[in-house]
């Protein structure tokens, strides 16, 4: 690909599924530059066909290996797959080491699979800021299923549920107390529970723990008539993968027939609207209000202003400057 191609010129090749165009468009989306917004808007008009599936779980639970297995199973059914694999950025240098591909290498020469790594670059919640634009681009490029693998999450990184049609929560044996640790937040968002690494002898314990937990809570039935299944899998042997794929397809059917899919699409749209507004505001603050931010911080440090009051002053200044 030549040099400095304007983003709009990439739209048509993206829609035709050209690999290098898809890749470059995602780079533009990650940069967040203003001059790619028109192209992203054009791409957004061509979305809505892909089944978007989120895969989340604690670090080391086997998400990447599971994604690899899922991709192979989807390919066996002649469905194409786009993957967005997210890893954390360093809070100090801003850099990252993205290693999700290590487990996915065998997929890369298959033209029906597209894998893109993304660093969180300071975004909290388990996703990167450009993740959903990345999903749009893969969707518009014609991938049948788009998988988002979140960063390894702790207790509260549940943004993925506001971003996808189907959420998988992966647990694994040997992480012991981690199950306890995440049960209040992350475990509640699952449409499908997956226990990975079931080739290990202690896996039955994890399955039992989770089943008990599900039974204790408000039950594993969701409002639109979907029973949250728990599926033991092994990415080593492939055990449970056909069942998992059937559950993912079954969930989409349940979403579609109940009308819940439209609800979720609306929720995703609304979340993205609010997130975008937040991002625009934060960028404008940081770009144009450094001085005011520093002054107000000084006042807070001196004990003269409370955070909420300081924020009101900042917003008022911002509004008065915006008035025509």
């Amino acid at each position: 690909m030549g040099r400095a191609i304007p983003p709009l010129a990439l739209v048509q090749p993206v829609l035709e599924g050209r690999l290098s165009a898809v890749a470059r468009m995602i780079t533009h989306a990650e940069s967040g530059e203003e001059d790619c917004q028109e192209a992203l808007a054009e791409i957004y008009r061509h979305t809505g066909k892909a089944h978007v599936v989120g895969i989340t779980g604690v670090p080391g639970s086997g998400k990447s290996a599971l994604v690899t297995r899922l991709c192979k199973a989807l390919r066996a059914g002649e469905r194409s797959v786009g993957v967005i694999a997210i890893d954390p950025s360093s809070p100090f240098s801003g850099g990252s080491i993205l290693g999700d591909r290590i487990r996915m290498n065998e997929l890369v020469t298959d033209p029906g699979v597209f894998i893109r790594s993304m660093a969180t670059r300071g975004a909290l919640g388990g996703l990167a800021r450009a993740s959903l634009s990345g999903v749009d681009i893969l969707d518009a490029a014609g991938y049948d299923v788009v998988l988002i693998e979140t960063v390894g999450v702790g207790q509260d990184e549940i943004d993925v549920v506001q971003a996808v049609h189907t959420t998988l929560v992966v647990s694994a044996p040997g992480l012991g107390d981690d199950i306890q640790a995440i049960k209040a937040g992350v475990l509640e968002i699952a449409d499908i529970h997956v226990v990975g690494k079931c080739d290990r002898s202690d896996a039955h314990r994890t399955v039992t723990d989770l089943k008990n937990m599900l039974a204790m809570g408000h039950g594993n039935s969701q409002g639109y008539g979907w029973q949250v299944p728990l599926i033991p899998t092994s990415s080593v042997s492939g055990e449970g993968i056909p069942e998992l794929l059937a559950a993912i397809d079954g969930h989409l059917d349940a979403l579609t027939s109940s009308g819940e899919l439209e609800q979720r699409r609306r929720r995703i749209a609304q979340t993205r609207l609010l997130k975008s507004a937040e991002n625009i505001l934060r960028d404008q603050f940081q770009r144009h209000h450094d001085r005011q931010i520093a002054e107000l911080t000084d006042r807070m440090m001196a004990g003269r202003t409370h955070p909420h009051a300081a924020a009101q002053i900042l917003l008022n200044q911002f509004r008065s400057e915006r008035k025509p």
Partner: peptide
């Protein structure tokens, strides 16, 4: 490279 602020993808 990470510590210099770059995103580094390692293939294994």
């Amino acid at each position: 490279l990470r510590d210099a602020g770059m995103d580094v993808i390692y293939t294994g």
